[in-house]
């Protein structure tokens, strides 16, 4: 076998093929495969993260619900307490007012009684004077006997 153009032709063909495969297949394809595996890894990581987030959100939701329930029951208890307070307040207020009205009424009664008594006293005195005048059939000087009359009135 000699060194011939065929040998160099085949060497050149080989070199051209390698260059072509490099440029048009190996290069783009390795790039694509690397990109694909990166995307798969990213996707898996994102899925994992999503699952994690969901778990956390679920925990958070449960926590919130629990907190809200507690708050609601607290508010309810407070409202009940406040209602009781208001009722108590109203009761005591009403009692107080009733007492006031009662005492006012009482003092009015006393006053009215006193006034009636006074009027009665005056009427009795006049009646007594009139009766006495009738009996004596003479005028009695009211002024002269006022002192005695006053004592009589007080005795009644």
């Amino acid at each position: 076998m000699n060194v011939t153009a065929t040998l160099f032709g085949q060497m050149l063909t080989f070199a051209v093929l390698v260059a072509f495969v490099w440029r048009f297949l190996w290069g783009p394809m390795t790039h694509m495969l690397a990109e694909r595996s990166r995307r798969i890894a990213d996707g898996l990581a994102a899925a994992e993260k999503g699952r994690h987030d969901l778990e956390r959100a679920q925990r958070r939701a449960v926590e919130l619900l629990r907190e809200t329930r507690q708050q609601a029951s607290e508010i309810l208890a407070q409202a009940e307490k406040r209602a009781n307070e208001i009722i108590d307040e109203a009761k005591s207020h009403a009692k107080h007012e009733a007492e006031g009205i009662l005492s006012a009424a009482r003092s009015e009664i006393v006053r009215e009684t006193n006034a009636a008594r006074e009027q009665l006293r005056v009427s009795v005195a006049q009646l007594a004077v009139a009766a006495a005048g009738r009996i004596l059939e003479e005028e009695i000087d009211a002024d002269a006997h006022a002192k005695m009359l006053g004592a009589v009135v007080r005795q009644i």
Binding site: N2, V3, T4, A5, T6, G9, Q10, T13, V16, L17, F20, V21, F24, L25
Partner: peptide, 24 residues
């Protein structure tokens, strides 16, 4: 030196062309 095996060259080129075409 210029003795050339046409069949070898042509068939290897044809098969290389298949490879090139598919790769491309």
């Amino acid at each position: 030196f210029w003795s050339i095996h046409l069949d070898t060259l042509i068939f290897s080129w044809l098969l290389g062309a298949v490879l090139v075409l598919i790769s491309w």
